[in-house]
Amino acid sequence: MMKKIKKYKLPIGILCVVIAILILLQSCSSEHWWFGYTYETDGYTNKSATIVKINYPSEKVVIPSTIFFHKVNALGGYVTGYNLWGAERKGMFEDNDIVKEIVVSEGIEYIFNRCFDHCISLESIQLPSTIKQFSFTNCESLKNVNFNGDVKEIESLSFSGCSSLETLVIPDNIADRGIAYGAFSGCTSLKSINIPDNITAIQRYTFSNCISLKQLVLSKNIKSIEWGAFENCTLLEKIIIYDKAEDIADNAFEGCDKLTIYGIKGSYAEQYANEHNIPFEELNNIVD
């Protein structure tokens, strides 16, 4: 006759002690580890977390919205002007050559500078509706960026050096100066991009060295095109500038030898074209 095997149940009190010890160990260090990630908690409230490292990267990564009872608020990198974690801290995916696809979960708001710097194999990323800040500098394989929400700003150099990026759809609710300087500089494969109507300025070097860009329709509310905005866009043939434009830098189109400006007759755009020996064509009332 077979003996019954007794099932051992861990008393609730001991289980609570084990959990308490785990929490205590997590709180005693500035860095914590949990299921393949290294993270840091908010030193004031201890309620939110920043994931600073992925310990075991794979080709596809889904970044969680919570980690060990903490809401994930940010992905680690460098804060503009100084390094938040000391001289040796790298961005979460900086110099990574394994990851190809990333899904950032809902609730995450910030992707700090250099988090993805030189993540050379990254091809596709899906951003949540909660994202407020991000940067993908020198992600040379990045082809697809899916914005899924209320993005207000594309920060300086956000896509700089993303040499495989061919097309990008910018959310319509971006702020009026929401495309910061150098945002797409060095995107050498960029062929198509929309400029939402509430954008009022093309800032410094925004599209410099975008050598595949052939034509662009600017926002009807563009007032200024700043220093070097389209510098060395050598294939740029057609740009539409509406009559609200009132300030265009002398070198905004330096190196754009094939360019023709299309605009409203008698506008500042026509005056600028004439003064800088750039061909000008009158824009029809209806534009396809």
Rank of each mutant, 00 (worst) to 15 (best):
T38W: 06
I63K: 03
T50L: 11
V52W: 03
K60M: 13
N55R: 07
V62F: 11
S48E: 14
S48N: 11
S58K: 15
V62K: 15
V62C: 12
I51G: 00
K60Y: 14
G77P: 03
V72P: 03
Y37I: 00
D42Y: 04
G36K: 03
E59Y: 08
P57F: 07
W34L: 03
W33R: 08
P57C: 12
N73I: 07
V52P: 03
G43I: 10
Y56L: 02
P57T: 10
N73Y: 15
Y44S: 04
N73M: 14
D42I: 00
F69T: 15
K53D: 02
P64K: 13
G36D: 07
W33F: 08
T41Y: 11
Y39R: 01
W34G: 01
V62I: 15
F68Y: 12
H70M: 05
I67H: 01
T45S: 14
K60L: 13
T45D: 12
I51Y: 01
F35G: 06
V62M: 14
K60E: 13
A49W: 08
G76K: 03
F68R: 01
T38R: 12
E59F: 05
N46M: 04
Y56D: 10
N46R: 03
S48V: 12
W33P: 00
L75Y: 10
E40K: 08
K53W: 03
T38L: 06
V61G: 09
V62Y: 12
T38G: 04
W33Y: 12
T66S: 13
S48M: 10
A49Q: 04
T38D: 01
D42M: 00
Y44C: 05
V52I: 13
K60N: 13
W34S: 01
I51A: 02
I54M: 09
I67T: 02
K71G: 08
A74N: 10
T41P: 04
D42A: 00
A49F: 13
T50E: 10
E40W: 04
P64L: 12
I63D: 02
V52Q: 02
